[in-house]
């Protein structure tokens, strides 16, 4: 069977639009989700017992069920409750809620991995708990979570393809509709796959760059 990519040319803008949608949904869900994740993390480690249990349940529920089922619940189930959501909103909300649970766990691991000795050194200098967190723990913890967070961004970008199943017009959706009109299935899947690959490779490259420039102090240290 001969491959021919020429038929795809008229649809290149459709594919790029899909990529754009995937990107901005990823970005919004990453920002909103990692902010919500902070709250979930604080709720989990905070002093309120019921809240802590609730946050743990939330994290476990999200992490042990597929994103697709979560999206279904939001997309198909909410209208039954009288809330009508466009696919874009359902996808953004779903990815955000999903992302919050994962980032909350990343924060927890990050804070736990800061050596206890740093906290003690701060205490021994007479610093208050808030000052210890702000001036001593926060930056090393951020450094520790940074690779995991950028990885989460890439995973989220790839996961945004699941939005196509609830008819979100993102890249995978565009790939399948081009495939359906041109019958150049292999070709368009290859092009689409390369787009995903290229963007995730760029993200990973950028995150490595950012890591070395943001945390220059960490060269030679293992925090």
């Amino acid at each position: 069977m001969a491959l021919y990519f020429g038929d795809l040319l008229p649809y290149s803008s459709l594919l790029l639009e899909g990529l754009w949608t995937a990107l901005y949904i990823t970005l919004v869900a990453m920002l909103a989700g990692s902010a919500l994740g902070v709250l979930v993390y604080l709720g989990k480690v905070g002093p309120g017992k019921p809240l802590s249990i609730l946050c743990t349940c939330y994290i476990e529920a999200i992490r042990n069920t597929p994103l697709l089922v979560q999206l279904y619940l939001i997309y198909f189930a909410l209208p039954a409750l009288g809330i009508n959501l466009e696919p874009v909103w359902a996808a953004v909300i779903g990815l955000t809620l999903n992302n919050a649970a994962y980032t909350a766990e990343i924060y927890r691991a990050g804070f736990e991995s800061v050596p206890h000795g740093l906290r003690e050194a701060g205490k021994a200098l007479g610093m208050k708990p808030g000052q210890i967190v702000r001036y001593i723990i926060l930056l090393p913890a951020t450094r520790n979570v940074f690779p995991a967070l950028t990885n989460q961004l890439i995973l989220l970008f790839l996961a945004s393809s699941i939005g196509s199943i609830i008819s979100l017009p993102e890249l995978t959706n565009a790939i399948m509709s081009v495939s359906n009109t041109t019958y150049r299935t292999i070709e368009v899947l290859a092009v689409g796959g390369l787009l995903y690959l290229g963007v995730s490779a760029l993200m990973s490259l950028a995150s490595k760059r950012a890591e070395t420039t943001l945390f220059r102090w960490a060269v030679g240290t293992h925090v």
Partner: peptide, 25 residues
């Protein structure tokens, strides 16, 4: 490894499901 990890699982599924019959009639 880098290719597979840089492409969504869903796209891989489509690849296999539609691609194999086309590539290997």
């Amino acid at each position: 490894i880098s290719c597979v990890r840089g492409i969504p699982v869903l796209v891989i599924i489509f690849f296999v499901f539609f691609g194999i019959p086309l590539l290997f009639p």
